[in-house]
Design a protein around this nucleic acid. Structure first.
Lengths: 182, 182, 182, 182
DNA sequence: GATGAATGAGCTTTCATTCAT
DNA sequence: GATGAATGAAAGCTCATTCAT
């Protein structure tokens, strides 16, 4: 799995061959087929694993009782942590989430994870803190911005610093929050 | 080219075979090789074409004399228009920009196009209208949010309406602008 | 034809493409098919042309009334001349004479040309000047040695000089003539 | 390897397809690529194998202490044996030695093998037994004559008999030796 | 009559998958 | 249960040949 993660994230699904994965994992190619029906199944298992980790990362320690601002910061900071610590998992999530090899089950799991964010935005909207827009649009803005930022960091175009992260977090919050006298 | 655009955008570069493109274009497979050295060359030509179109789209009619807010709206609305009218070209740009088959020339062209946005943000930052952050981070926020939005629209998760676009444009502006008493 | 000769001699039949020939001949590829049924037919026409030229070269001015030694020298010197002046034609003859693309007609023509040499050796054998061996073996020795020599010259391994040619001619004569008390 | 030898000798390198070799070897086409990088590599491996066998054949049991005549007979008889027993290997050697697919390494190996013959002729020349001619010319004569003979035998134009071989050997010796009062 | 763009059969090569060991 | 050599379908690509211009 970790060999596959590394290779899929680095080179993509199609370009990575099963023997490559086997080599990196120091097992025979046939062994992989004892654990996964085929390459697609391996890809899906891996993707789902990443989704679950991400999901857990943003939900663990969520301040259910806090205010929208605090909750937003929690989610954002957890995403940052996850993207840093599980760099490849995050990158795989981001680059493969529209891949053709993903099963309906994988898509479903991804959707479920997104439901958490959707719920957050719905609640915030209802209490007047968050802009009046479809949750999916809000998610697109925040998650899209965040993902693009991390791709740029990964590509070496931006230096990751605590200050930068703070600024971006604030920027994203400003994007979704209601502005008084707006 | 348009057959290739459709297929590369729909299925990705690796998954699309040359015979598929030939079939869709209603030509023989060999014919493609009269115009492009190989599949990679076709992919690069197509990508560069999309970059050029996008570049032209956001720069044509740019209000060089307007204020930062107006300029931002111009860029954003042009991107919206482009994403709507050249849906597949925009999607290709977004999904393939880190693809391994792209040549240095293709990357360079993409970078040049981004320079325009970079210049906009630099100017805005210098005159105190835009947040004090690296241009690439600002680009990531706006372009990332926008791209994610259009992927969501494309996936049918959000309905595209003028109101929605207006809101998102405002949200993105709020993300990058300086907020008084901030 | 001369473009084809050059290319077939230089690169072989299979490796030479019809468009290559057309380009070198400064005609359209289709034009070639107005004069030859197909690539094979062109190859055969060319080969036969070379055979005819070679045949004529060794038979013109043949001293029918001379002695075996003189006749041998005539044949050998004509072969040398031909190999020098029609370098590519000779090389084609030598390298393609067992090629699969040659028609029965081409082989027949080659055989006819060889009949001249066969007749020479038969006569010489009958009058006791030439060794008692099958003509084809004698031909193999002289023609084989000669061909190998010219391939070596062509490959730059030997320098062609009148002295060398004289020596080789003498060596070949010594190979086929009857040696007294031998 | 032996399937490839048969086909390359029979039909040439270009005309033989990898599936043909695989079929004859009763393996899958892909299997060939587990052992050879590509078709060219297979061709070179095969050629080098033939060169090595030929080289060993003529050098094994070489009468280093014998006189030039005995040494010549040794070399010639070994070539005959090799050509008989390894018919196809000899034919491949002869027909492919100027082929374009051969690597520098293959050419080098062939050259090394020829060095043995070159050394023989040089020594003979120095002691006055062999004609005063470049070694490469002498090699061309003997090897060329021999090769042509075997091609004629192979083509069925001559019957191979011990007598014939004896005669040809004598003829070749007469071609290269110094003739008294000559 | 000459052209050369278009064709598609057929080549070389790759790689997901199997299965005897 | 693990292996990795063997497989062959299918990919990218070439080029002899055709035919509308």
């Amino acid at each position: 799995m970790s060999a596959a993660l590394e290779l899929f994230a680095e080179q993509g699904f199609e370009t990575t061959t099963v023997p490559m994965i086997a080599d990196k994992a120091v097992v025979g190619a046939g062994t992989i087929y004892r654990y996964f029906t085929n390459k697609e199944a391996l890809g899906n298992a891996l993707f789902q694993d990443c989704v679950r980790q991400f999901s857990e990362a943003i939900q663990r320690g969520y301040p259910a009782e806090g205010n929208a601002r605090e909750q937003f910061r929690h989610i954002f900071c957890r995403m940052v942590e996850f993207a840093k610590e599980q760099e490849r998992a995050f990158y795989l999530l981001e680059t493969h989430r529209h891949a053709r090899y993903l099963s309906e089950e994988s898509h479903e799991l991804f959707r479920e994870m997104m439901d958490f964010l959707r719920a957050y935005f719905r609640a915030g909207r209802e209490q007047g803190t968050i802009r009046s827009m479809p949750s999916d649009a809000l998610i697109a803005i925040v998650y899209g911005a965040f993902a693009a930022l991390y791709k740029a960091i990964r590509a070496g175009k931006i230096q990751e610093t605590p200050d930068l992260i703070d600024s971006v977090e604030q920027a994203c919050w400003d994007a979704v929050r209601v502005h008084p006298h707006g």
